[in-house]
Amino acid sequence: MSQTVLRGEKIYSGYGKLQVINGIDIHIDEGELVTIIGPNGSGKSTLIRTMIGLVNLFDGHVFIRDKEVSRMKPHEIIEAGIPLGYVPQLSNVFPSLTIEENLKMGLFVKKWDDYYQERTHEMFKLFPILEERIKQKASLLSGGERQMLALARALMPSPEVLILDEPTAALAPNLAEDMLQLIVSLKKELKISILLVEQRAKRSMELSDRGYVLVTGEIAAEGPANELLAEDKIKKLYLGVRDRK
């Protein structure tokens, strides 16, 4: 039986006094690709940012493996050696740092010299373009290359769970499909669990194992992706599928 790697129980969170997430239960099991979809402003990004300590948790609990990380600051989670990788939607690379330095940032709490060669070798197999441009600043990369660097940085510490916040947001349609395919192949090759927040709801759900539909900070639906894809109400409201009558 697969184990849960990331779990949130009765999460209430928000900004200042504004509560955005209203008592959500969520979990990701080993080796799963789980997608969260929902309309703009539903709290998708807030939910995942809460789980990694970037947004105030008002109430509830968050566990990574069996370790409770509720109310831990992001750097404390990483310092504690908890196997987590996160790629934010915006500012997902350090533009003034070189690609090499960006990759090293993925190993910040470890001894760079001990792990860097081995881990970059693996990253270059996944993203060969990064090796060619290793000494260049990240600000000079194209949108797609930036996403690759962001993924590589997040994968450097060999995380067991990878959290991606709209990784296709700034990409052209053909690159967006490539990125989603890449995420699926990462899941298979590296055997990691992935929690994905995505605006390309239908396509990402097609590639996922399970999904959550978030509306106004609450879970409106959840379950295996194929079942969510088959529900008429979800198809109409959240997956952009129209009736052909």
């Binding site: 970037l54 934010p88 003034s96």
Partner: peptide, 24 residues
């Protein structure tokens, strides 16, 4: 140095620096 790169990283993005393990 690690401190210097952490300073530049913090300058670029505080949140990304934090999720990389930097106590900004």
């Amino acid at each position: 140095t690690k401190l210097g790169i952490a300073m530049r990283a913090t300058s670029d993005s505080v949140e990304l620096a934090q999720v990389s393990g930097i106590n900004t």
